[in-house]
Design a protein around this nucleic acid. Structure first.
Lengths: 146, 146
DNA sequence: AAAAATAATATCGCGCACGATATATTGTTA
DNA sequence: TAACAATATATCGTGCGCGATATTATTTTT
């Protein structure tokens, strides 16, 4: 009977559930693009700045490289990124978008914002709520990041 | 150059990251208990009400049964839950805590709130922020749940 | 410059999470 | 009551996510 151990009092459980459900809401659009949500995150990183080493991508997404490496290998098989050894530092693997990977930006822009805002129509939160939510999540992320 | 596709503008990426990092913060305490975070969630469900069918546990955690079944099988191997066929409905598997599973509630109470509040000390959010955050996450969860 | 430490990436193993499918039991309908 | 639909759970395959460890290349120290 410890109130601290009740599921309904857990912010972490809500984060865990909200993240799963919102990520899941992306899948119809992402399936049309032929990718998963983590792969979409990698694409966003590369659309911002092409040709980055594995470490930089991992840091940007706050993931371990042993998560990102297999992710990139799968994306390479899909033909959306290519990897080549660094010239000055041969330990690095530089990851670049292929033509297909670059073209997916426009498709994503056509599908995803519309698809998500449609699903969010019934959500009572307003723009300012999302902005504050983003700030509070950033506080939490900063508290726990290494 | 689509602002909608920039990582920094994504609430979903923040949810995904915050959930990962906060869950990760539980691991030192959970390792001491010998369980994982999803297993801890199942325990919280059973501490609230012992002896539940797989479906009820899955609904409470908003997970699919094909996620929960293997989770429970692992927990059975660990000796923290037991499963028996339902009497009136032989399709059901009723999941109950073992003595070990029940004893873990006190251990969890001793370890987890203290361990988490220690790590949260440097987080600028106040009690009222967490309460509003919980409400907003509930709005999001309600919007996307089936 | 050889040896040791560090850094970048990869590999392995395990536990989720879930779509698709299978199996057994119960409920419903013709 | 026999056929059919629905329900509860399980199994299988794939993709994360990460701790532990390995490999190769670079940097630092002796």
């Amino acid at each position: 009977m410890h109130a601290e151990l009740q599921l309904d009092n857990q912010v972490c459980f809500r984060l865990y559930t909200a993240a799963r459900l919102v990520t899941h809401a992306y899948t119809p659009m992402l399936t049309e693009l032929g990718i998963t949500y983590p792969q979409y995150l990698v694409l966003m990183v590369l659309w911002e700045k092409d040709c980055q080493p594995v470490n930089d991508i991992a840091h940007r997404l706050m993931l371990e490289t042993n998560t990102v490496t297999p992710l990139l290998q799968r994306m390479e098989k899909l033909g959306i990124v290519s990897r080549k050894r660094g010239e000055q530092d041969k330990r690095q693997h530089l990851v670049s978008l292929t033509a297909k990977g670059r073209e997916m930006e426009q498709k994503a822009y056509d599908l995803i914002p519309a698809g998500m805002s449609e699903q969010l129509a019934s959500c009572p939160l307003k723009l300012e709520d999302y902005q504050r939510l983003a700030q509070e999540l950033d506080s939490i992320i900063n508290t726990f990041k290494k």
